[in-house]
């Protein structure tokens, strides 16, 4: 093979260099304290997506409240879709260390979702929707705000 004057490191050298870099990183970071999990872009995206799903549902509920197409029986499937997304988000949050606060937040949103369904079963009118929408908006914003605050340094 023709030598173009470029130094090509062997696999052993690459491994050594990689190990040294990893060690340097560990030494530099070992004394830093961390009380809360790192930022996770996928969690932030999931929260935004879930918020959109809930918002869309509440808009539909507001428009159809009191009509046959707005009955719980017709819209029941939407509750399960959101519940499934909440369960996924809960799993993602619970799998990360030092993320208890966010897990608690997702639990509270899940409880609110169950309460919303209960209210729907009992009979919701359009005028009851705005405060419910605000409550969900506030909760999702709070979760996202905490997630974004976890961005540290170059994140």
């Amino acid at each position: 093979m023709k030598d173009f004057g470029l130094w090509v490191p062997s696999r052993g050298r690459l491994f050594l260099a990689g190990s040294l870099l990893a060690l340097a990183y560990l030494l530099a970071s070992c004394s830093e304290v961390k009380f809360i999990s790192d930022y996770d872009e996928n969690t932030a995206s999931a929260v935004i997506q879930l918020h959109g799903q809930v918002e869309q549902f509440l808009l539909k509920l507001e428009k159809t409240a009191g009509k046959p197409e707005g009955s719980h029986g017709v819209l029941e499937e939407s509750y399960d879709h959101v519940r499934l997304a909440l369960s996924d988000l809960h799993l993602r949050c619970a799998a990360r260390e030092k993320n208890d606060l966010q897990v608690q937040q997702i639990d509270l949103i899940s409880k609110n979702w169950d309460s919303l369904e209960q209210l729907h079963k009992l009979g919701l009118t359009a005028e009851q929707i705005p405060p419910l929408r605000t409550a969900f908006n506030v909760a999702f914003t709070a979760v996202l705000r905490l997630e974004n605050a976890k961005k540290r340094g170059g994140q």
Partner: peptide
């Protein structure tokens, strides 16, 4: 009761963020 519970849980979510911050 359900309406009030939803509002209380929403407020608790905000307080958890403040705790995290």
């Amino acid at each position: 009761r359900l309406h009030l519970e939803i509002q209380k849980n929403s407020a608790r979510t905000v307080l958890l963020t403040l705790e995290g911050l």
